[in-house]
Design a binder for these strands. Structure first.
Lengths: 338, 338
DNA sequence: GCTCGTTTTGCAAGCGATTGCACAACGAGC
DNA sequence: GCTCGTTGTGCAATCGCTTGCAAAACGAGC
């Protein structure tokens, strides 16, 4: 393995100069810089990140922690983050908290603390105060995606506003019986996302002078199958069937469309359906939805971190960064039949 | 930050002893080992992985390279690998080759070579000889998932056998007009997966004395939408509609089911559908399929690597490891109507 | 009690960079 | 020609751990 001394010898300079020339090139004359770079590429030299990190204290590596990966949303966030990091010359080390409490502790006690990462991105993860404190104590920046997280900069979409937007879309079309499929308690652990969406839904109804009926709400588990079940219940009632369904995720919305079809109902003639996410299957099903952009969220998380990692974080923006969302109208929503 | 010398002082031994006590504990008396461990936890000591790696040459870190993450199969493989690695005390550094050739080169030239990883897992990636050679030159073990890859240990499912199994299932049910939705040329780049599945399909037909008709094959892009399109074509023909479809992926199979429904056909009465993967939506759609177990593949890749990383890789198994697959019969396949 | 083999332990030399400090080189200004 | 300010370079300490080698400690055997 060829090291910095080899390059120095070959270029006829000291290792100090090589180091400076290859990292930014400050305080090095253009001529020598060029010479060093030539030698480096000629010899096929690549810095040892370990030695570099040990000496400098910078790891050039970010830890990303997700609850699971096996899901469109998380995978997209990670993908976005990965690409952004690559542009910045950083590595991404992935941690998964699926393994239960044991795995979770192990991640925090050993992996993250092993001086491996400069900072941490926590995706849809409700960290305990202890965990946050530990990270802070190590002076490691932490940004959350999906939040808020006490004392942590977090990127969030305003779930309340998202839900309101979706519901208002239906109201504007003339619907007055609008059902909602949200999350059950188990999913509320993560930042009350389902609750917020439900509140947004109710707020929109109330603002329009529509009563939010308790039996127009069904909890489900954010899967297609769960949405299907819930929609069947909602649409199968003999009287007062809702003319529109707002599902808190696209997968549940797709389940609803399939349920409607199986009941012989035509979407959107008999029932309008709208979701949240802009899942990859949304286009295929012609699903109207409020898009959030997970990949973009991953990228943005990286930008925020990079800023925080800069020596003089002068322009620290506020704690919470609001992420964009957007109503995308496709074929699954229309005026109710008269 | 507290370091090994602090622990040594606190335990009343030398740093050498601390190092040995904390890593395996060989050549250290049980008594001192206990004392050192106590001091370490008491002081909250965690080894600096950089210093450790620099001194030992072991990184305790594996690079995983995927073409994209945003897809059920890849995400599952990575998830499996991540969990297995965590059990072994290794980190997983994720590399993504989505960014085109530029990103690809950057990964190989800078990231992987930066002495960051002990080994590399390449998922569904056709590496150039150059890339493989480079890794070999660095003496870094490399295992592929999905293969084969020249000169590399690879975990593969026997795509030919998978396709044969699916097709034979249909034949055994009594089908004689069996269509196939495979991949188009663009997807053949990766290890001829589509071609192999097509060959398996044809082999099964031929073995059963059934002619493989050219117009019973349609290429698609492995998406639900693509499968839908292709199935419409196949099922919409006025004469000689096939009674069964074997799709090379579950997503395309699901597209086929939806296409059949839209044509007013009932699955499986009018047409049987079988896929490959055991995608998370397969259960919901009652889709018969040949399951492959991506998560398991990720785990297995790690096992293979760990073995290769061991000092004396005595029992090197052969180059290619065959991964299991399994026919799962649900409601989408049945005897053809008479 | 002495010798010899086996653990246990410590010393100290790396591993391969980064970086503060000091010095050299080089013009500019007078 | 001399001083002063920049700018460019090198010296050498440092980061925190691992590990080969040698010494110390410890029993066992006689």
């Amino acid at each position: 393995m060829i090291n910095i001394a080899d390059v120095a010898r070959h270029a006829g300079v000291s290792t100090a100069t090589v180091s400076r020339a290859l990292s930014g090139g400050h305080h090095v004359s253009p001529a020598t810089r060029l010479r060093v770079e030539a030698s480096a590429t000629h010899l096929g030299y690549v810095v040892s990140s370990n030695a570099s990190s040990l000496a400098s204290g910078r790891m050039k590596n970010i830890g990303v922690v997700v609850p699971f990966l096996n899901h469109w949303f998380f995978a997209s966030v990670v993908e976005g983050a990965q690409q952004a990091l690559q542009r910045h010359g950083y590595d991404l080390t992935l941690y998964n908290l699926t393994g239960g409490l044991e795995a979770r502790r192990s991640v925090f006690e050993h992996f993250l603390l092993r001086q491996r990462v400069d900072a941490v991105i926590a995706v849809s993860l409700e960290l305990t105060e202890n965990e946050v404190a530990r990270l802070h104590a190590l002076n490691k920046p932490l940004v959350g995606v999906g939040g808020p997280l006490a004392g942590v900069r977090t990127l969030t979409v305003d779930d309340l506003a998202v839900a309101r937007l979706a519901t208002e879309h239906l109201i504007a079309l003339g619907h007055t019986r609008i059902a909602h499929i949200g999350g059950d308690k188990a999913f509320d652990l993560d930042f009350n996302l389902p609750t917020n969406r439900r509140f947004g839904y109710e707020a929109a109804l109330v603002a329009a002078g529509i009563e939010a009926r308790r039996d127009d709400f069904r909890p489900a588990d954010f899967t297609t199958a769960g949405g299907y079940q819930a929609a069947k219940q909602l649409l199968g009632r003999p009287h007062e069937r809702p003319t529109a369904i707002f599902a808190a995720s696209d997968e549940m919305a797709i389940g609803s469309i399939l349920a409607a079809r199986d009941l012989g109902l035509v979407v959107p003639r008999d029932v309008s359906v709208i979701g949240v996410d802009d899942h990859e299957l949304a286009t295929f099903f012609g699903l109207s939805t409020v898009a959030q952009f997970p990949q973009q969220q991953g990228e943005k998380a990286v930008e925020v971190l990079m800023e925080e990692l800069r020596p003089h974080p002068e322009s620290r923006t506020g704690l919470n960064v609001n992420m964009p969302f957007e109503l995308i109208v496709r074929g699954s929503t229309a005026r109710p039949a008269v």
